[in-house]
Design a protein around this nucleic acid. Sequence first.
DNA 1: GTCCTTGCAAAGCGTTTGCACAGAA
DNA 2: TTCTGTGCAAACGCTTTGCAAGGAC
Lengths: 138, 138
Amino acid sequence: MTMPVRDMLKEKGISPSYTRQKIYEFLAASTDHPTADDIYRALIRELPTLSKTTVYNVIKLLCEHDLVKPVNMSSSEMRYEVWHEPHSHFRCTVCGTIYDIPPIIPRYDAKRLEGFIIKDEEVNLSGICPICQQESTT
Amino acid sequence: MTMPVRDMLKEKGISPSYTRQKIYEFLAASTDHPTADDIYRALIRELPTLSKTTVYNVIKLLCEHDLVKPVNMSSSEMRYEVWHEPHSHFRCTVCGTIYDIPPIIPRYDAKRLEGFIIKDEEVNLSGICPICQQESTT
DNA sequence: GTCCTTGCAAAGCGTTTGCACAGAA
DNA sequence: TTCTGTGCAAACGCTTTGCAAGGAC
């Protein structure tokens, strides 16, 4: 069912170096939309010579081949996720975590947007996540 | 009908210095969600001693008092708009312009988001704007 | 041999901070 | 006088670029 990462990269025309596999695997296993620095810090143990430059290079490559998608909800740093079935995002304004939530399909009147070619739609919610609510009551 | 900017700032508890009025007025007259640098470059003629620091200071102040809202659709720089009636945004991936479009209200099943306190919802569309379509055909 | 992947160092860019001066109250 | 608004210069954080060394082919 799940294709090995090696083959998945090859299929997209990316030569599956060990570093690239590891970065993709880390992103695929993440649910919290890591930053480039998160990826770097998570893999530096296993890949002691890893550099931030390589992380950025690989992310860029994966994005260009539509294996990874940038998530632009936090203002300062870019976050990333692997492409997966449609979903929306919820950002907690307290802890900054971005959660995947069930897909919200925006309904709009196409006639009022005549002339615009719409290629992507996203719905972003924000507020306070369950964890931060609990912490504020204790 | 429209309150003078002086009074609007005062009402929000902001002392209405000339610089602050000018920056707010520029933002209020803009439809293209300017960056801090856009504001700086637009006003430097009229306010020759203006500095970027002041632009950032004033933007921050206006945001804290809910007169201005940051718009976070372009990845690199922050953009800003004055608060006005609900609307959504369309970003042209060719020219980078962010357009205000009629409000799109996201419909979602609150039960599936139980535990999350939702404070803000936004719908962002992206694609190609009419102007860039025309330019690509000529 | 050539091409590709990696990584160090430096630069780039938007933004923030430290601090000081000048004007307002 | 004290407080507030402004602005220079420097620092900062994230990202990109230049370039070279090592490995794959």
